[in-house]
Write a protein that binds this DNA or RNA. Structure first.
Lengths: 239, 239
DNA sequence: CGAAATCTTGATGCAGCTCAATAAGAGTGG
DNA sequence: CCACTCTTATTGAGCTGCATCAAGATTTCG
């Protein structure tokens, strides 16, 4: 069940057999979370982190007027809310965007790991730093990219992230979000997202349809997005 | 020299006398950095973190067309680039926005601290998580707030952060950025920032002039910004 | 199969951008 | 201390990318 987490970690660091065993053990109790379920509410004290085994989750903030901004997307293999180990509560809500399979890992376990397996503890720190790097990339997108480039950038990022954990095929990847969800990631309205998707499709860059992203031409998409995967810290190694 | 770092840390956690001594020791070599100096270039391998003792620094990304997005601002007492300890290189540039005084802390020292003073290591992890929380708040601003609310939000955030480290007075705080810098934080043009500042001033919310933010009415400013300081994880305690 | 959510497209509006020109500082060298 | 230059601030006029409003088409799901 934690194969994707291992793929993700090993893409950047060594993970010993012993450490792998530890991870397998703490990832034990498996839980199903139905789509559109709020997993964690802003401000709520939490004493666990979540290993996302299958599905998509998003962190978001609702505004007074009902609009929403998603500040992060998580995919299979992501260890969510590791930062809550230090922060003790979240500054935003977390929702399952699709049906999800998760494993709930008590902070005590993480505490224990940082003490007994400090190298693994470091990897957890790395993961939260990687999340922060992705936040910065999103800030740049939201602040300076056009709606088209921003959308293209998101598709590129998820292509790379999905590929690392083996969730791409030669055409693209499953990405079962609604256009409304996309709009909430991109700081746009769903109406405009719809037009942008049309343009991406018609100009042969990428096709978002029925919960999939199919990339027609990654080079072109990347150029349109001004995308540079460096911020994802994928080791320079075999692609 | 590290009084502001201590204020910041102690606002959220206990720091023992021994830990304080350790921090004082590693913060030893002091260096001046002139305004507008690029401290770290994107991609460059780095083996040190930076304790900002005095001044303002920003992380930013330049776009092909010359526009720029600042993704984070750092003030006195911030321990910059702690994340580089794990990431080993940065995904963006860092620049001194004003004349700065810094202390360069080799990663070896941080390594040593995480081993010998694990509680301090935890505090460093906390700091990087706090940076991430601020990133998320900026994403929400960039994605969903109007130019006015976004500017007001930034002024509120910095008021709280500056106050923690004792850099506010009863009117406001020193904030020697240009309107161009502000625009680069806010995802706006400097022309529009100028107009927004005028509106903030004329509606009695806040005045940005000659390198200072003066807050006319924090309540009103906060309401206009839809600002909620929770994401800064200031302990619920004496304000 | 019916209801609700999502998608799609058109028409129109406006927040923030671009272009432009002037004013006001802030260094710098003589 | 002034002349010169360069950067920053200010304001106006006009434009445009994305929002809003609206209405129908399609898909999803109970």
């Amino acid at each position: 069940m934690i194969e994707r987490l291992l793929l993700k970690l090993r893409r950047r660091h060594e993970v010993s057999a012993e450490e792998e065993a530890v991870l397998r053990r703490i990832a034990q109790p498996i839980k199903q979370v139905p789509a559109r379920t709020v997993q964690i509410r802003e401000g709520q004290r939490i004493d666990f982190s979540t290993l996302l085994i299958e599905g998509l989750m998003g962190r978001y903030k609702d505004m007074r007027d009902g609009r929403r901004q998603i500040s992060a997307l998580h995919i299979s293999g992501d260890f969510l809310d590791l930062h809550s180990f230090m922060l003790k509560r979240l500054d935003h809500d977390v929702m399952a965007l699709t049906d999800c399979t998760v494993s709930i890992v008590p902070h005590e376990e993480i505490e224990w790991i940082t003490e007994e397996h400090p190298r693994l503890g470091r990897l957890f720190w790395f993961e939260t730093n990687l999340d922060a790097a992705i936040h910065r990339a999103w800030e740049v997108s939201l602040g300076r990219r056009s709606a088209l480039a921003r959308t293209a950038h998101l598709f590129c990022e998820l292509y790379v992230r999905m590929k690392i954990v083996g969730l791409t095929d030669d055409r693209g990847y499953e990405f079962p979000l609604t256009q409304i969800d996309l709009a909430e990631c991109l700081g746009l309205t769903s109406v405009h997202v719809n037009r942008v998707l049309k343009e991406l499709r018609e100009s042969g860059l990428a096709t978002f349809r029925s919960g999939r992203v199919d990339i027609d031409n990654f080079e072109k998409l990347q150029r349109a997005a001004e995308f540079d995967a460096d911020y994802l810290f994928v080791d320079p190694g075999p692609a």
